[in-house]
């Protein structure tokens, strides 16, 4: 009974689960079938990583440019701030002028941080 009630309250979200079952079912079915169909020819050279026809040198899992990591960190920072704005935007009309100027203050802080990373050259690519 309790289970049914909690199901009813989250009723809008149940169809997402259904869609996931349909999509994941299709994907796993195709993954199994495509492995089963088609020819199988194994050879040592073929199993190597593709490197434009020359022999493989070293491993692909070597250190790469720190810039990508920096972009990922900045993304996390900004994305969290974007998520903060959504509940505010939904209630924008009822929060009134005070709510608006409070959010503008928040946006100003965000922009100060943004100019700081620009001046630091975190987004320079060369």
């Amino acid at each position: 009974m309790i289970l049914l009630q909690s199901l009813n309250s989250s009723r809008d979200f149940l169809p997402i689960l259904l869609m996931f079952i349909v999509a994941a079912g299709f994907v796993s079915f195709v993954m199994v079938v495509t492995q089963w169909l088609g020819p199988k020819h194994k050879s040592k050279v073929k199993a190597d990583s593709f490197e434009c026809g020359i022999e493989q040198i070293g491993n692909a899992r070597s250190p790469f440019s720190i810039k990508y990591f920096l972009v990922a960190i900045l993304f996390v920072l900004f994305d969290v701030e974007v998520i903060f704005m959504y509940p505010w935007a939904v209630n924008f009309k009822s929060l009134g002028a005070i709510g608006m100027f409070e959010m503008f203050t928040f946006i100003a802080f965000l922009l100060i941080g943004f100019f700081y990373i620009l001046k630091k050259g975190a987004l320079k690519w060369d």
Binding site: I16, M19, F20, V22, A23, A24, F26, V27, S28, M31, V33, T34, Q35, L37, G38, P39, K40, H41, K44, K46, A47, D48, S49, F50
Partner: peptide
């Protein structure tokens, strides 16, 4: 479907299958 389903020797087998599965499942959802 009829092409050879090839997995390179030094790849990570499980993640190699998981990658395209995630891409397709999320696109469909």
């Amino acid at each position: 479907f009829m092409k050879e389903d090839f997995v390179p020797a030094n790849s990570n087998k499980f993640l190699f299958v998981l990658g395209p599965s995630i891409a397709m499942t999320t696109a469909l959802m």
